[in-house]
Design a protein around this nucleic acid. Structure first.
Length: 104
DNA sequence: ACCATGACTCCAT
DNA sequence: CATGGAGCCATGG
């Protein structure tokens, strides 16, 4: 299994209404320091619509700078549609929405 | 193998 | 808060 595939698998495991950080995904993929590669993996996302990249945020719960997949607005709408509250600055409350394996 | 790039993260200024 | 450097990783030329 490629690193990318791991990333995609993990991202697809993220339940609706939750968000995960790149570092979190990197950790699950086996490389805690591969957060960068994770972002790259999603950047080349081969399965748009299947991989909920909108549920992936940085460690602070902040959304992508804007050029991610149509803009923060799009990501914001998608997240809010799932019940994730996003502020106007593009931040989500990680304390409430952070995703953990053992915290459904 | 080397170098450049990037949706990251950490730390210093 | 803004900016920059350093460290890490996968990918592509």
């Amino acid at each position: 299994m490629n690193f990318y595939e791991k990333v995609y698998q993990i991202v697809q495991m993220i339940p609706a209404g939750r968000v995960a950080s790149y570092g979190q995904i990197a950790l699950m993929a086996g490389n805690p320091k591969a957060s960068r590669a994770v972002g790259y993996a999603l950047h080349v996302n081969p399965l748009p619509g299947v991989i909920p990249c909108h549920r992936v945020v940085n460690r602070e719960g902040r959304l992508a700078p804007g050029f991610a997949f149509g803009g923060q607005d799009e990501q914001k709408k998608l997240l809010e549609a799932e019940g994730v509250d996003v502020d106007d600055n593009g931040y989500v409350n990680m304390q409430l929405y952070a995703w953990n394996n053992a915290n459904p």
